[in-house]
């Protein structure tokens, strides 16, 4: 296994003349939990969609586990979209079977154990769950794969603080030295204790990357404070 799980070189993508990524360079090392931090419209979702093969870059290169994005890389990347994307009519038990059918690295056992700790029954219909529980179910399904790279797009958006704590706890509990987790968010004060390092993205480019403790040590401020300073409107 290579030390670098994801590598981007000069990645470019525009939508009808409007640039979303303009020469993005980034390296994510194995065994890291990293934050992709930037304001709305900075390119976070575009980057994540390119990394899991939902979009194609216009130029530049992206490698997952040393190989190109495609059939093989999709088997190694577990993706949590920034919106609820599961079939509403399914029951929790059916969703587990659905994921198990799609992904050979999916652990039904792990998913069931996590759902059980939340008190969610197999027979519960997805559409009858609260927004917080829907987000939790979707995260559990994403984290129950044995992937090399977990791409979590805004996993904390629109949920209450207790649910945020649950989600962050689940990310820590699933930590593995052989995989990496990318968390895209702008809710920085909630996540910074969980992150090894952060990448600040602006106008489709990484303009600052460092470890959380290095930022605190050298600048004497939290990542959240640095973000507010850098992105002051």
């Amino acid at each position: 296994m290579s030390e670098i799980v994801m590598e981007c070189k000069n990645l470019c993508k525009s939508y009808g003349g409007k640039a979303a990524l303009s020469g993005l360079d980034m390296e994510i090392r194995r065994g890291r939990i990293v934050g992709l931090l930037g304001p709305n419209g900075s390119g976070k979702t575009t980057l994540i969609k390119i990394a899991n093969g939902l979009l194609r870059p216009d130029a530049g290169e992206i490698l997952i586990d040393g190989g190109p994005v495609g059939r093989e890389s999709k088997a190694k990347v577990s993706y949590l979209p920034d919106c609820l994307s599961l079939p509403e009519w399914m029951r929790v038990g059916e969703l587990i079977k659905f994921y198990a059918g799609f992904f050979s690295d999916f652990s039904e056992e792990k998913a069931r154990a996590m759902l059980k700790s939340l008190g969610l029954e197999d027979s519960a219909r997805f559409k009858s769950l609260s927004k917080g529980n829907k987000e939790k179910v979707q995260l559990i399904l994403t984290m129950s794969r044995e992937a090399s790279l977990y791409l979590l797009d805004e996993p904390l958006g629109g949920v209450d603080p207790a649910t945020r704590d649950y989600i962050l706890g689940a990310i820590i509990a699933n930590y593995s030295e052989s995989s990496s987790v990318v968390i895209s968010t702008h809710l920085i004060s909630d996540v910074e204790k969980v992150l090894d390092e952060v990448f600040f993205i602006r106008e489709g480019r990484i303009f600052l990357s460092d470890t959380v403790d290095n930022i605190r040590d050298v600048r004497g401020m939290s990542v959240d404070a640095l973000f507010r300073e850098e992105f002051r409107c």
Partner: peptide, 14 residues
């Protein structure tokens, strides 16, 4: 480490 990290809510590498 994993249990302590979970309890403290911090990154396991830290």
């Amino acid at each position: 480490v994993r249990d302590l990290a979970a309890e403290a809510g911090v990154n396991p590498n830290t």
